[in-house]
């Protein structure tokens, strides 16, 4: 599988992302600078986490208007799978590839800790290696991950099975405490209508090897690699 990782100024998670992809069986990912205007033919485009443009204006707002994003949007619309994690999720929303908005965390604090996610659907190219209902433990590290969407968008996302991950307790139950950033409906990750663009706030690339304390995140990368095979 061939993949490309888009690099914006202020992004800092690209190496871990590349490592996670390699471990799951991807070829060495191509790193593409934001000023580029074209992408090689790849099976996956990744927007990793970080703090593009220092989070100026709104998180992801400036990066979403950079030259390479026209190509990313065109490829996404043509069906190429796209994964956005953390700041990458914010950029996908700002670029209009995913609906809603990511606002300041409910308690105004940067949250850096492990969270539990319920895999709400394994009927996606990003989650096929999990079972629906699985609970995975992965870290979050963000100040603005409070997902918001209007009622109609929420109903549509839910009805179409496009809410892929929800914040939950270790036993899979839902609570306000488990949903620390205040996201509507505990939303942690969503798919676009076509099913080829996934955005999520938590960092699966941080839990792919035993020394990281958990390998729960590796299933996402293995799913992507197996779907591309």
């Amino acid at each position: 599988m061939k993949s490309a990782i888009i690099l914006f100024p202020g992004i800092n998670r690209e190496r871990d992302m590349a490592r996670a992809l390699r471990l799951a069986g991807s070829e060495e990912p191509v790193i593409v600078w934001h000023k580029e205007t074209s992408l090689p033919q790849v099976d996956l485009i990744v927007l990793p986490g970080g703090f593009s443009y220092g989070d100026y204006l709104r998180c992801g707002a400036i990066a979403a208007r950079s030259p390479i994003m026209r190509e990313v949007v065109a490829k996404a619309e043509a069906g190429t799978p796209v994964l956005g994690v953390c700041n990458g999720f914010q950029i996908l929303i700002e670029a209009g590839l995913l609906p809603g908005a990511l606002m300041r965390n409910r308690e105004l604090k940067f949250i850096c800790r492990d969270v539990h996610l319920k895999v709400e659907s394994n009927d996606t190219r990003f989650t096929r290696q999990y079972a629906t209902g699985d609970v995975i433990r992965v870290p979050v590290a963000h100040g603005e991950g409070n997902y918001f969407a209007d009622d109609e968008t929420r109903r549509r996302l839910d009805g179409d099975g496009r809410i892929v991950f929800r914040y939950c307790e270790a036993d899979g139950s839902f609570s306000t405490e488990a949903n620390r950033n205040g996201s509507v409906d505990n939303v942690a990750g969503i798919l676009n209508e076509r099913g080829n663009v996934l955005g999520m706030m938590p960092h699966p690339e941080d839990h792919v090897e035993p020394h990281q304390g958990s390998t729960d995140g590796v299933g996402i990368f293995r799913s992507i690699v197996s779907a591309a095979a």
Partner: peptide, 8 residues
């Protein structure tokens, strides 16, 4: 196009 996120 840029200055405001009209969703919120």
């Amino acid at each position: 196009k840029l200055l405001a996120n009209t969703v919120i």
